[in-house]
Amino acid sequence: MAKICEETQSLIAVGAELSSQGAEHAKSCGKCSLLLSEYQSLALLVSDSMDFEVPSGFADAVMNKIEMEEKSLQNDWLQKCVSTFERLMAIPQTQYLALGLGGAVSLLNLAKFVFFVLIPVQ
């Protein structure tokens, strides 16, 4: 087999693009043109057999999904904060800590009231 035939046929077999010289050769060479038409037919057969029908309104469905996803992402941040707080407050240690902090603040306020309001008045 001539070298050009070998090269052209190996390109045809893998579906690679032929060079202008290769394309010219494929037109004139009987064997190569037969192989080219056979592989083109094969490609067409495979392509046609995989022709799954796209459901009508598919693009709308995709865009709706994107819209919904974006909305849920916006709500996600707030929801995450609330759920993190709820989870933290379910732990007894956190509850004691919160109680202790609350108590400390109350005592501080009471002390401020006694020393800065009641005592100066007397």
Partner: peptide
Amino acid sequence: FRFLVLRYQKPIFKILG
């Protein structure tokens, strides 16, 4: 993006199919 979906929906269905 809708244009891109419309452009590539058919090839995607073929590949996945």
